[in-house]
Design a protein around this nucleic acid. Structure first.
Lengths: 326, 326
DNA sequence: GTGCTTGACGAAATCGATTTCTTGCACTTT
DNA sequence: AAAGTGCAAGAAATCGATTTCGTCAAGCAC
């Protein structure tokens, strides 16, 4: 790897001039040519580490997601990446496993690595953005929000919950349960509030136990569904507040020998279905990729020095597939 | 962010001593305590960028995969990450989209960012490891190999192809086609050779057109399957050489109204099935996560200075689900 | 012609660590 | 007691860029 000094020596100029050539400062035509030729000849690329040390920042943005194996987050990551590429930024993708300790570790890395900014889907409300914030690096919360004053991009979760539940009611289901995520996570809270609003307004039957809290994974959804089916008066339909839990719920239904056509399932998110799902499954399509792209745009604006007041962008989800009526 | 100089000043020692405390050199008990206290008090963490510039390396490894939305690669990534964490390394995950240009860009970034090593699943045979290699950074190829002399971890693709095809033969299918990936990619080449070996040895019927090349994605699999079904004498079973193409193939079957129980499908890889797949689907389970973990282990050994001869580790796939006989 | 502005560009400082050199002190060894 | 040995720890060099500062010359006004 050639250094700026070698280029300078070969071109017969000072290192400062070489730097100026590559950073758009005033250099005479003549020397520009000399420098470029020399750089070309030596295969010179500026050392990012040295530049970063000096500039105290880099062209890398850090993306923290809770679960990289969840297609929702990979789609989101793609959105971030696409947008970042357009501005010449690289994306570092980190997996927090919804573990605040891991999250903190990565945030510290982001800080000490001088990354230009962070996009994160916080593992918990207690996320500590202190280190990043004190460096003045912008942060954008995505999908979930934080108590810190940062920009955010989220989905209109309540509306999504309402849409999902309404679709089930409209399809004729009358005993609609809800499998929500862990209590205390705002994102899932809003979704189940949407459910609650609809079941209350439409006066459907709600029993104790119709609201199940589960972890966000497949096993959580399956366990919750099993619990629902064991109720004395079980539901005839369910709203699950994320994609993985829906998979678990569908598995539980299948294991219980229930014909999927007879049981309404509404999902917030998309299922990795191979084949068209049973007609009684409603999917609310969450704009994951767009979420990522929007977050990246906002972050890049901040990195560029934008100082407008904090923004929260709310994206609307849409029903992917209206259910047939019963 | 406190610097080493501030810590040194507060502790009343020189920066060199502070550095020694954090890098395990000989420092008296007394000063160690002083330094640690001062560091604690200031919340000091060594600046990674400065350290990296000086040491000419970092504790970051770069993982390049062709498609981050493919569950096979996310599982692989998890394996890499898990292993890296154990040694205190961070993983930067980059998506090449099977685009040699993007791949090259990321490799250059890895080089100029002084990353400790690279694990990659090369987009093509023309991958250029020159920059990385000239820095002496170790590289491990995963899932696919390269013409460069680097360590590799791969799957016994031919055996997997043989296992998949044999399972179909054993299940009674006699006109077995193959949907292979793009010609020229070794990984898929080996898999289809496994198929070829079995159909030849077992004397099943093979027609022109029974071997389809497709891109590695869902649409490729679907198109290939459609082409197969349009043959004058279509196959009664198919081996698909990756998971996404299998999804496409199953979709095509479904769209053609063919009962999945009547048509044998063997997949190299796992399907993101929600529910148990039709009994005629054979899945050869590829140990993706393990692949990643092994690659990470090998890379970390090299980073640690291991200079043993080049190794290629071959992992064996296993049949996930023996088919019922017809 | 003198003084002032302006622009190109080199010298040197800087970013924050690590590491090599060097020094000084305590302790052996003959 | 002089010389040798070992070790803790400070001073200074180093990694490779960017950036400030200062110089010098050209251009222009008076």
């Amino acid at each position: 790897m050639a250094t700026i000094y070698e280029v300078a020596a070969l071109a017969g100029v000072s290192p400062a001039t070489v730097s100026r050539v590559f950073n758009g400062n005033t250099v005479s035509e003549e020397k520009q040519r000399l420098v470029r030729d020399a750089a070309q000849q030596l295969g010179f690329t500026p050392n990012k580490t040295a530049r970063r040390l000096r500039k105290q920042s880099s062209e890398v943005i850090c993306l923290l997601v809770p679960d990289i194996e969840n297609p929702f987050f990979t789609a989101l990551a793609r959105g971030v990446e696409d947008r970042a590429q357009e501005s010449g930024f690289s994306v570092v993708l980190c997996n927090t496993d919804d573990d605040p300790a891991k999250e903190l570790r990565y945030l510290q890395i982001a800080a000490s690595e001088h990354m230009a900014g962070v996009i994160l889907s916080p593992a918990s409300d207690e996320v500590d953005l202190g280190a990043i914030a004190s460096l003045g690096r912008p942060v954008v919360a995505v999908d979930r929000t934080t108590p810190y004053p940062v920009d955010a991009v989220k989905i209109d979760n309540r509306a999504a919950g309402i849409a999902a539940t309404t679709a089930l009611v409209d399809a004729g289901f009358r005993r609609i349960a809800c499998i929500a995520g862990p209590a205390g996570i705002e994102e899932t809270e809003d979704r189940y509030l949407g459910w609650k609003q609809v079941v209350t307004a439409r006066k459907t039957l709600v029993r104790d136990g119709f609201l199940q809290h589960a972890n966000f994974r497949v096993d959580g959804g399956r366990a919750a569904m099993k619990a629902l089916l064991e109720l004395i008066q079980p539901p005839d339909a369910v709203v699950t507040t994320n994609n993985l839990m829906a998979i678990g719920a569908l598995q539980a239904l299948h294991e219980s020998g229930i014909d999927p056509e007879d049981f309404g399932v509404a999902v917030l998110g998309e299922l990795p279905y191979l084949l068209p799902p049973p007609s009684s499954v409603v999917q609310v399509r969450l704009p994951a990729r767009h979420l990522g792209r929007t977050a990246a745009s906002m972050l890049l604006e901040r990195i560029g020095g934008d100082t407008q007041p904090l923004r929260t962008v709310v994206l609307r989800a849409e029903i992917a597939r209206p259910p047939l009526s019963l």
